[in-house]
Design a protein around this nucleic acid. Sequence first.
DNA 1: CGAGTTTGACCCGCGC
DNA 2: GCGCGGGTCAAACTCG
Length: 127
Amino acid sequence: MSEASHTRQDSMEILEEGYIEEQDMDRGGYRLVLPEDGYEWRKYGQKFIKNIGKMRSYFKCQRSNCSAKKRAEWSTSEPNNLKVVYKGVHNHALPASESGSSQLGTSSNANQYDLLTQVFGDRSTAH
DNA sequence: CGAGTTTGACCCGCGC
DNA sequence: GCGCGGGTCAAACTCG
């Protein structure tokens, strides 16, 4: 059974691990610290999924034509085990150049736009 | 002052 | 057909 989880690469495919660290103890709140992937994200939601008994944070790319999204999931009992799920793809270059990354201009450019067209079908009618 | 972050409420999709 | 879960957006507050 290794194709069921490999054939389905619709959007979410990349998984990363991070951790939770306390940054603002004055405000009595823990801050989520996840591994820097080189992109800029903006948190737009947070909810507790009782279905899996874990907390989920929602991040979105800050680019105009970038519909890429990031989802952070971790257990409330074990914040040290944080899982990051990348949804969608970036259609722009990395705003921040970290250590040598030569993954640009490959066969993903065409694939990215193809997926983008599908994800763009949101419900932004008259809000 | 601006941007980013946080919390709540609302909406949609799917299951039964 | 209705209910529940999950996801997103909006408003407000805080920090830089």
